[in-house]
Design a protein around this nucleic acid. Structure first.
Lengths: 214, 214
DNA sequence: ACCTGAACACCGTTCAAGT
DNA sequence: ACCTGAACACCGTTCAAGT
């Protein structure tokens, strides 16, 4: 542990002088995240990721079981980022206007999908999850549900939102958000970039009305 | 056009005696549909499709520009089937109970996704649509929207459903349906197979309430 | 313990040549 | 007009061997 250079993080393919890589797992995750964003998850290859960090392609197998395991790792990182963005959006809204909070959280979900379309597709698509592998990914939606439950619970407490299972109310919103995000990404809904949030608000309207008391 | 065998459709790899295939494009579409269902769109290869119908793999390029074009063709067929299933489900519901009709149409959408998960993922996923190719696929959702608009329009006429843009109301429902289908397929929502329709009805409830008058 | 070399069994795509 | 042979430039994965 002392033979390594003082700044192992800078030991990239340009400047690597040692046989061992500084932190190859993280370097591969970073490269994969970048390459997926550039070429899509379909165009991503393990060999290019290894090349871009300056190691032999077989080296990746010391740290990840296979290509899918590496992709699953970056998908998990994506879910953490997504949940954080939703929470930040919530915090920026007036605390007592719970419906507006839900709208802002929703806008953050869709904005993330539009900003990182390939990562979002990887995170939510069937590529990693059709079989039972990566159960951590199956639970990854938890953070998004939590973000939506906060304003809904507050709304129930203040009497704005109907009493009932807050988890179900959150899932109603989340399924709608997700379907909208997917349709926008795949051009099934053709909407001008400047109008994405506006259309989302329109589509959310009936669901929000149905969640209100009276 | 007279040198071909009398039953060109039976000219498969087992019994083919002529140099020319009976209807290679359709045979390739059929093989692709079957193989995608078996191994998923990720596991699908052009070479295996060609092998399974008994032609050289390069022969496919006479009829389809590339692998994606073949997949786009079967995705389009899938949308036709899906829209038909939704219409059939609608027809099976009591005509005047427009909300029940929407529920049944929704159940048909989700049932299709569960019955043909790989085809559904191919149809709705970004694999074929991230660039602007295959505009016919972008319009393919039209049939699904139409199916939902019918009961909503009837509901507006009979005063059960709020007045307003019926297209927006249909998209509210459809985005929710699609998000739910995706979450179920990718195990983001863990629900027993027997409870899928029931949970859908629960999640739809707020949206349906919001669409009603009063 | 971590990485490389070399190999295996595949792909998608192209293009000249066969029927 | 339609299909095949042969080739090209890749993949993911494995495993013995190097440091």
């Amino acid at each position: 542990m002392s033979r390594r250079p003082a700044t192992p993080a800078r030991a990239t393919h340009r400047g690597r002088t040692t046989y061992h890589h500084g932190d190859l797992p993280q370097a591969l995750r970073d490269a994969a995240t970048r390459l997926v964003a550039e070429h899509g998850a379909d165009g991503f290859t393990l060999r290019e990721a290894a090349r871009s960090v300056g190691v032999h392609h077989a080296a990746a197998y010391r740290h990840f079981a296979d290509k899918r395991a590496l992709l699953a790792a970056i998908a998990e990182e994506g879910y953490v980022t997504l949940a954080r963005r939703m929470q930040v959006a919530d915090a920026a809204a007036p605390v007592t206007d719970v419906l507006e909070r839900v709208r802002r959280i929703g806008a953050a979900y869709v904005a993330f999908a539009r900003k990182e379309p390939s990562l979002f597709a990887l995170m939510t698509g069937p590529r990693l999850n059709e079989d039972g592998r990566f159960p951590s990914l199956e639970a990854a939606l938890r953070g998004c549900v939590d973000a939506l439950e906060a304003p809904l619970r507050a709304g129930q407490a203040s009497g704005i939102v109907r009493k009932g299972a807050v988890g179900m109310q959150a899932m109603t919103i989340l399924t709608l958000l997700h379907g909208y995000a997917e349709f926008v990404l795949t051009r099934r809904i053709q909407v001008k970039p400047t109008r994405v949030a506006e259309l989302l608000a329109t589509l959310l309207e009936p669901a929000l009305r149905g969640l209100q008391r009276h």
